Computed example of a mutant assay.
Amino acid sequence: MATDESLALNRLAHAAAGQRATPTRDPLRRWRIAGLILPLAFLALIEALVRASVLPEHLVPAPSSIVETLWQLGAGRLGRHIGASTLRVFAGFGIGAALALLVGALMGLSRRFDALLDPAFQALRAIPSLAWVPILLLWMGIDEAPKIALVAIGAFFPVQLSVVAGIRGVDRKLIELGEVNGLSRRALFTRVLLPASLPHIFTGLRTGLSLAWMFMVAAELIAATRGLGYLLSDGRETGRPDLVFGAILLLALLGKLSDSVLKAIETHVLSWRDTADRDVASGGER
């Protein structure tokens, strides 16, 4: 009897393992495809309206004209503009996010440190991006330093705020459980506070990355000879809306691509969570 029960249990275990190994169909696949088709359909509609003279081409150029303008720039010249802007964003975002993670963790763990710095950060966060430009140009000149510094400023504040909110929002019961189990302060931070606050932190990182692209354009609009912001300024000054819209489309594509990479990293790092979003993704719509 025991042998029969063991065999039955083994069969059930193998069957369950086979079911787990079978890849599940993505219930949102059709919606994801529709999400990709939607902007293409919008561009096709704009193309039709411009060709039918419903929209004035000198104000809203046809998407085909925008593509032709970008093609005429050449792969080398366009690549240099894209590369310059991308390097500035990544360098500024890396510096700003690293400082924000450090300062945010200190503020989240120390009420005194938070009380000391929070009023100043609240005031600095309200300063528009363009207001920083003349100050940074005065202090750092017109080379790469002020552009990267401006991008770092844009990325710093949303990440810092999310780190503080994430640490402060950790359930007190989890902290008490760690203390009961004799965790040191360092172990409590690395094993309880940090994993529990990671969702907030990644939200701040994605917000900071989008702001980094915005602040990069602000820097390049004023003091740059290369970059997508420079293309925007050049198109405005020469009265070429096709160049302006081309730079905007490139910024949208690069912003979406960089956010998708960061979102994929977030999904991988937070794969251990058992959340409602996982239920929706695996079980269907709500």
Rank of each mutant, 00 (worst) to 15 (best):
A2C: 03
S129F: 15
V280F: 06
L254N: 02
H14Y: 15
I37V: 15
L101Q: 04
A34N: 00
V170Y: 04
L87S: 03
I46T: 06
S260H: 14
V159P: 04
A44W: 14
T203C: 02
G246A: 09
S258Y: 06
L109M: 06
V89I: 09
I95S: 06
F90E: 11
Q72M: 06
L106E: 14
E179Y: 05
V54D: 11
T22D: 05
I153N: 08
L174H: 08
E220Q: 03
P61R: 01
S210I: 07
R206G: 00
L243H: 00
W71H: 11
D274L: 12
L9P: 03
L43G: 11
P61E: 00
R186N: 15
L174N: 13
A13P: 04
A17C: 04
A91M: 12
I46D: 03
E220K: 01
S6G: 10
G166N: 06
G74R: 01
E68Y: 11
R20Y: 01
A44P: 02
P134V: 07
R20T: 07
G204E: 01
L254W: 11
R273L: 14
A105H: 01
H200E: 15
E266Q: 05
E266W: 02
E285G: 15
L101P: 01
T238N: 08
W139A: 09
